[in-house]
Amino acid sequence: MPLKRRRKPNAEFSVASLTDIIFLLLIFFMLTANFVQVKPFELPESDSKTVAPTSIVIGISKNSDFYHDATLVQFQQLEEIIKAAFVKSNQNKDFTVTIVAEVGTPFEEVIEVMKIAGKLKVKSILATQPKPKS
């Protein structure tokens, strides 16, 4: 009478395909990430630790030049640029205009961009750099 051998199930898990999936996810997130392009300005200092989402970046130099994604634009174009980005985001309630104003920028220029954001009923924040620790 021949004895039947019992085959034990293999309890090992192959991770070879898992590394491929992780690599593909990494590539996907790197390609779809929203990279913020900020012109290298000297920003005002603040001790605030708040990090806010960025939907659109508007830069203002101390010479009153306005930038959108490091591209020089006219002040008259700002409302249309912000409105187009807001509509493109499906009028997301968390849409935020980040104002990057160089140190020495006339505050009236910052206020004008904030007025445009207020007119469109979107949030606006002022970008700052951390104060050096003493």
Rank of each mutant, 00 (worst) to 15 (best):
M1S: 15
M1F: 13
L3D: 12
K4T: 09
K4W: 08
R5N: 11
R5Q: 13
R6C: 10
R7E: 15
R7Q: 14
K8A: 14
A11D: 09
A11F: 09
A11T: 09
F13T: 12
S17G: 12
L18D: 06
I21A: 09
I22C: 08
I22G: 03
F23V: 12
L24D: 08
L24M: 06
I27T: 06
F29H: 06
F29E: 04
M30D: 03
M30I: 14
L31V: 07
T32R: 11
N34P: 00
V36P: 01
Q37K: 10
V38E: 15
K39I: 09
K39L: 10
P40E: 08
P40L: 07
F41T: 04
L43F: 08
L43P: 01
P44V: 05
P44H: 03
S46I: 04
S46N: 06
D47N: 14
D47T: 06
S48C: 13
S48Q: 10
S48V: 04
K49Y: 07
T50S: 11
V51N: 12
A52Q: 09
P53G: 06
S55V: 01
I56H: 02
V57A: 05
V57L: 09
I58G: 04
I60T: 00
S61D: 14
S61K: 03
K62D: 10
K62S: 14
K62T: 05
N63D: 15
S64C: 02
S64P: 00
S64V: 07
D65P: 00
D65G: 00
F66M: 07
F66H: 06
Y67K: 01
D69H: 06
D69T: 05
A70P: 00
A70R: 14
T71E: 15
L72I: 11
L72R: 14
V73P: 02
Q74C: 05
Q74K: 14
F75W: 04
F75L: 12
Q76S: 15
Q76I: 15
Q76L: 14
E79G: 04
E80I: 05
E80T: 12
I81C: 00
I82R: 01
I82A: 05
K83V: 00
A85S: 13
F86H: 10
F86D: 01
K88I: 03
K88G: 05
K88T: 08
S89D: 07
S89I: 02
S89Q: 01
N90P: 00
Q91R: 15
Q91D: 07
Q91K: 15
N92L: 03
N92F: 01
F95R: 03
F95D: 03
F95C: 04
T98H: 00
T98M: 11
I99M: 02
V100I: 09
V100Y: 11
V100D: 12
A101N: 05
V103Q: 14
V103L: 07
V103G: 01
V103P: 02
G104S: 07
T105L: 06
P106C: 03
F107K: 13
E108H: 03
E108T: 11
E109T: 04
E109W: 01
I111M: 11
E112D: 13
V113P: 01
M114I: 08
K115V: 10
A117P: 01
A117W: 02
K119P: 00
K121V: 05
A127Q: 14
A127V: 05
Q129A: 07
P132I: 11
P132V: 14
K133D: 10
K133E: 13
S134E: 15
S134H: 08
S134N: 09
